[in-house]
Design a protein around this nucleic acid. Sequence first.
DNA 1: AATTATTTTTAGATTTGTCTAAATTTTATT
DNA 2: AATAAAATTTAGACAAATCTAAAAATAATT
Lengths: 219, 219
Amino acid sequence: MNFTTSEENYIKSIYHLQQETGTVNTNSLAAEMQTRPASVTDMLKKLRTKKLLQYERYKGFKLNDNGKKIALGVVRKHRLWEFFLANKLGFEWDKVHAIAEELEHVSSKELIERLEVFLGNPSFDPHGDPIPDSNGKIPQLKQLNLSSLELNQNALVSSVTNQNPQMLEMLKHYGIGIGTELKVMKRFEFDGSLEIKVLKKAACILSEQVAKNVFVHYD
Amino acid sequence: MNFTTSEENYIKSIYHLQQETGTVNTNSLAAEMQTRPASVTDMLKKLRTKKLLQYERYKGFKLNDNGKKIALGVVRKHRLWEFFLANKLGFEWDKVHAIAEELEHVSSKELIERLEVFLGNPSFDPHGDPIPDSNGKIPQLKQLNLSSLELNQNALVSSVTNQNPQMLEMLKHYGIGIGTELKVMKRFEFDGSLEIKVLKKAACILSEQVAKNVFVHYD
DNA sequence: AATTATTTTTAGATTTGTCTAAATTTTATT
DNA sequence: AATAAAATTTAGACAAATCTAAAAATAATT
């Protein structure tokens, strides 16, 4: 079955919301999509007739297996395009999202399969989010918070949450981004701040507040 | 100013038609766009209020300078994406058009500028059609028909018209495509057929009918 | 439990892009 | 020149996606 850009955007937003809250309600989806609750109700009716939703009047709703499959397809396209924009065209990682919002609606299946191969079958997008494979399977990574990384363990930065521009600027200044290899030299228990050694760079110090937004992994 | 996908498609089609006939009429545009004349009239009214058209009721119409600028922007995007699909993702040149029809409507200016650099500032798409630069200037190539290429002059295939699948298959069999370097060894005047030497390959013979559809250029 | 507040849905309108059918204008033919 | 044919436009309708305003259902509060 084929879906309009608008339908795909609703499906994707429902998917993201239900990842966090389990079930979704009309107002929060309207807020997420910057539209009116009445518009949401209208679209839900459409998605229901297309058998993508588990829905109970006045209660709440979520995607069924059918809907999830569609959502994962869109997420997959979005993240592959983000990877392309950052790693091939040299966009900064904070610029790729808006453009991928358009590219994700290009429909050709073969395009996405070839793009994936061209990019070298990446597992994570420039924000560190996992890229679903063509069957909708998401690579599960044993990520851990930088705050809880043991001393002297080399690790790779896999994602950064809470995209506060000033925090991102600070991390950039220290040369820390997705894929950066680093280790924790010292932990100051009194305020939770960390002395970080980025490979081939001088050590730097991150507050606990910042460290909690940085996730790393190692083999 | 911003344009919808539908508007861009009309603008592009008008551009292509007026390249051939100078001025465009409602029925031919309707045929080109696989829609009804009444729909064309509706859209023309819209494009007129946006000051893109030179239009006279019941007579005919064409793009003004404003409209041409928009058209060239869309053509540029289309052909850069075609180049990407063929040269980076490995699509056959007869598969790229349909996908580029979608990609050409992605709006980011910076995306296209970066894509162009990434592709190495190509001048021609996989069909041999010229790619307008960011100012709308089209590289004018002194193309000439393979039939009128002088003997022993090395030349590059720059485009192939009349995309008859069987003819394309024949050319492919002989190793002749966009960018192929070749020369004419012998011309048989009685039927206009040509003996062609593709560099690093054995000679082959093309009928005049085929040769007339192949265009080449040299420095 | 009754009332108030919040959430959700319905009813009806609007915009965009399309359509059919009919009317109008231009072009071609007898 | 009158009539027939073709091309173009208008009038009015429709589907998709949105909106506002009001009604209905649920949740929270006194």
